[in-house]
Structures are given as C-alpha cells and as structure tokens.
C-alpha cells in the first residue's frame, strides 16, 4: 500500500541520507538505519522511491569513473562455457575440470596452468578446512548425543550445531574464487547436510553428505570410508517412503586418490533418506540388506 505522506525538511534529509548510503554500498544490515530503510522500502512511499532511484542512478555514474579497460577475452570464453554447463546441468563437473585441472588440454596453457595450479592449491586448502570442520562438528554432535539420550533439548543443540556449521561452511565457500566455485555448484543455495549413521556399530560412526534440492544433487564426503577391494563397491541409494530404494550411483575411494567428495545427480529431489551399501563391483539394482552400512534421514 502506498503511503503518500508529507515530510518535514529534516525527514526528507534523513531519507536522502539513507538512500545515499544504500546506493553507495555503505548501509549494512548491522547499521541502525537498515531497518528504517527496509520499512521505507516496503511502504511504497513515492518520495522515498524517487529519492532511492535517483541515488542509485547517481551511484551508477560513479562506476564510470574507474579507469576503463576491456575484460580479458578468456573471461568471455569461460563465461559461456559456464553457461553451457548450467544449461546442460553439468556445473559440478565443469568446476571440477576448471579448478582441478582434470580436463583435456586447455588453450593458452602457460597462463592458465599457473591459474589452475593456484586454484588447485586453493581448492585443496578449502576442502581440507571443510573436512576438518565437518569432522570437528561431527565429533561434537556425536559426543553430545552419545552421552545423553537425544532429548528435545539435545536435538535442538545438535540442530544448532549443524546450523552453525552451515553458516561457517557458507562463509568459507564465499571466501575466494575457488570456494565461490563450490557455492556456485549449489546454485547459491545452502545445501542440507545429512548425517548418515551406522546402525548397530559398537561406537558411533557417521558419514556426511550434502543434499541440494534445487540442483537435485548429492555430494558424499569421502570421510573415513576405507577403500574396497576390486570385487566390491559402495553404492548410494535414495529412499522415498515405502518405495523400493532407488540406486543413485556407485563409488569406490581409491587409497591413492585425494578426491574428497563424490557428486551424484538425482532424478527427483523428493526424498526421505539416503543410504550407502557395499555391493558387488558394478553395483546392484536393489541394495543388499545386510550390507547397508549407513542410513541418513532428512
């Protein structure tokens, strides 16, 4: 609803201050004026709207003050490679290739090789940090839930820990180019972290995975999964209600590989749980019940 009110000179100046600060990028969510700005934005007030538009336009002009220089040609090439990957739903592999160097020869080798090496190092560092965080937070979660029954309070604590981890992971992922690529893999959507627990184990054993409903993808962390001999493989399953488990894909960590995460596409994002089993090499159409080693509910 539009609020066509009349402002005093002081009030008008206050609105101009808020709009100028917003347009220049210096009005942050922590600032006292932020909620006032949001309230005015939601009010539909004409003076506010016109002032804001004017300030934003003026700020846009400031952009032209920067020394003008063309973007490197490779930026365009990479942009459209990325867009094609988005359209084909292959963004995960696109980033894996782009940042890990696991791809066919790339033009302009000298320049790109340096970048790839740099990004590979960054990716390994970020992945290591993520892994350490995951293990640490999992340990916290496990120790608490092991000491007590999971009362409602403990569930809330565990949930809070997972949320905190999510924030940290999101923060880390946004920290630089390589980690931004990880964010882009999830389409700017914060994925759901799922803990797959090992039933009947003498001590708590858990496996972590990320589930992106929007991307219809799951990312299984290698964690402590041991390598299997060549006659066996791990297989991931999607479980929906009382339906038969749906095979998603197989993976077998190689003891010599540094791969820390396995990416799988889902036909449908509708799911209640995921499970990991050990199957014969090549995988199975239905899980071998006594070989289901981990189950995790959403």
């Amino acid at each position: 609803m539009t609020d066509e009110r009349t402002y005093s000179q002081q009030e008008r100046e206050r609105i101009e201050e808020l709009c100028a600060a917003y347009a220049l990028g210096s009005l942050t969510e922590g600032d006292p004026g932020w909620s006032e700005f949001e309230t005015l934005l939601a009010s539909g007030d004409t003076f506010f709207s016109e002032t804001l538009e004017s300030m934003l336009t003026s700020a846009t002009v400031l952009a032209e003050a920067a020394p003008q220089v063309d973007a490197p040609e490779k930026a365009k090439v990479e942009l459209f490679e990325r867009i094609n990957a988005i359209e084909t739903g292959d963004l995960g592999n696109f980033y894996a290739a782009r940042y890990a160097g696991d791809t066919a020869p790339i033009p302009r080798v000298t320049d790109l090789e340096k970048r790839l090496k740099k990004r590979t190092r960054q990716t390994v560092i970020i992945s290591s940090i993520l892994a350490v965080l995951l293990v640490t937070m999992t340990s916290l979660y496990v120790s608490r839930s092991w000491q007590y029954d999971l009362s409602a309070m403990e569930v809330r604590k565990a949930s809070h820990q997972r949320d905190s981890l999510g924030v940290m992971v999101a923060d880390l992922m946004k920290s630089d180019s390589a980690s931004r690529a990880l964010v882009a893999m999830f389409g700017e959507e914060m994925p759901t972290m799922i803990t797959l627990a090992k039933a009947g184990a003498p001590k708590p054993e858990e496996q972590m995975m990320l589930f992106s409903r929007k991307m219809k993808k799951v990312f299984v962390m290698r964690g402590d999964l041991p390598a299997l001999d060549s006659t066996k493989t791990y297989e991931l399953w999607q479980i929906r209600g009382s339906e038969a488990p749906i095979p998603i894909g197989i993976f077998n960590p190689n003891a010599n590989s540094r791969q820390m995460m396995y990416t799988f596409d889902l036909a449908s994002a509708e799911t209640d749980a995921f499970a990991i089993s050990i199957e014969k090499a090549g995988g199975s159409a239905t899980p071998t019940a006594d070989q289901i080693i981990y189950v995790g509910k959403l």
């Binding site: 952009a63 920067a66 020394p67 003008q68 220089v69 973007a71």
Partner: peptide
C-alpha cells in the same frame, strides 16, 4: 563488459 569489468577491477 568494459564498464562492469572496470568497476569490479
């Protein structure tokens, strides 16, 4: 591309 790249650079 020119104005955007120049700004962010």
């Amino acid at each position: 591309q020119r104005v955007v790249y120049s700004l962010v650079l």
